[in-house]
């Protein structure tokens, strides 16, 4: 209990901790929202792929001294296009195409980063370094959060219908490809923001785990988006507390909390009906 009080006292005292908390909360919201669409479209693997594929973009941005969002967006979209291209122009299935493309991008990213910077920087990119968030980072994250919310509010019905029933959306003439690539672009922006809090390796966990937890609790998409954002916030704050108190790396701490919430929901959520399902299997 004392450690919780200590955490809040420190929060009042240290700017770096306030910055960390603000960033973590914003990342929790945006990754919960975008992650919901990712899991409903059956694109968890794609989310993982895009989050890794931005690595060379991060390196190039660093080398050229440009905004990291621009470098990451270019490579994220490039990877999404390439994955689609390989899958549609050959008999290779999409998941295989994803595996080939993202591992190549990831490898390229490693090489570029080792050329550009010291290994300590790489460590931060891979595992997150939330306690070193700058004011400029907070600004960027705020802009991304704004973009995510605008995107989902403006294109809510298009995102809903293409996630649920793409064939139907095509029959009335909706350009489902543009929606897909727009979502991929927003996903790369979210990835770059989440990079600061949980690192590239665990971005996929922030996208998928809070959204999957929310899915277990509701049958309504709008509710799911709010719940996923909520679970994202709770895991970010609680994770940050563990990180500060026990000196754990922030990324793993946040992700473990998210996973714990999923585990509790898996057993307890009424929709999941864990105990009833088990009974019907044993009958």
């Amino acid at each position: 209990m004392n450690s919780i009080i200590d955490f809040f006292v420190a929060l009042g005292k240290y700017d770096f901790l306030q910055s960390a908390l603000i960033t973590a909360v914003m990342v929790g919201i945006m990754s919960g929202i975008i992650g919901s669409f990712i899991i409903l479209r059956g694109m968890s693997l794609m989310g993982d792929a895009i989050s890794h594929a931005v690595l060379p973009g991060v390196a190039v941005a660093y080398m050229l001294g440009i905004n990291i969002l621009i470098g990451a967006s270019v490579f994220g979209i490039l990877a999404a296009l390439l994955i689609g291209f390989v899958a549609s122009k050959s008999k290779i299935k999409t998941d295989t195409s994803i595996g080939v493309v993202f591992s190549a991008f990831y490898a390229l990213g490693f090489i570029l980063i080792s050329m550009a910077e010291s290994s300590s920087n790489l460590h931060h990119i891979l595992f997150g370094n939330i306690l070193a968030v700058s004011d400029a980072d907070i600004m960027t994250t705020t802009v991304v959060l704004g973009i995510v919310i605008l995107f989902v509010v403006i294109f809510y019905k298009e995102l809903l219908v293409t996630s649920f029933d793409e064939t139907y959306a095509k029959t009335y003439g909706l350009n489902v490809q543009i929606i897909h690539y727009a979502l991929m672009l927003v996903l790369t922006l979210v990835t770059v923001s989440a990079l600061q809090t949980v690192g590239i390796i665990l971005v996929v966990a922030m996208l998928i785990t809070p959204a999957a937890t929310a899915f277990l609790w509701t049958d309504k998409l709008s509710t799911m988006l709010f719940l996923a954002a909520g679970f994202g916030i709770v895991s970010s704050i609680t994770g940050l507390y563990f990180s500060y108190t026990f000196n754990w790396a922030s990324g793993p701490a946040i992700v473990i909390v998210a996973a714990a919430m999923f585990a509790i929901s898996f057993i307890g959520a009424p929709k999941q009906n864990f105990f009833k399902l088990k009974r019907s299997v044993t009958q």
Binding site: L40, K157, S163, F164, Y172, G173, D219, K220, L221
Partner: peptide, 17 residues
């Protein structure tokens, strides 16, 4: 998919909207 009967029918109006 988290969608109820009414919202599914409502997607029928999306094309004209």
């Amino acid at each position: 998919f988290p969608i109820d009967v009414f919202d599914l029918v409502l997607t029928g109006t999306y094309g004209k909207l």
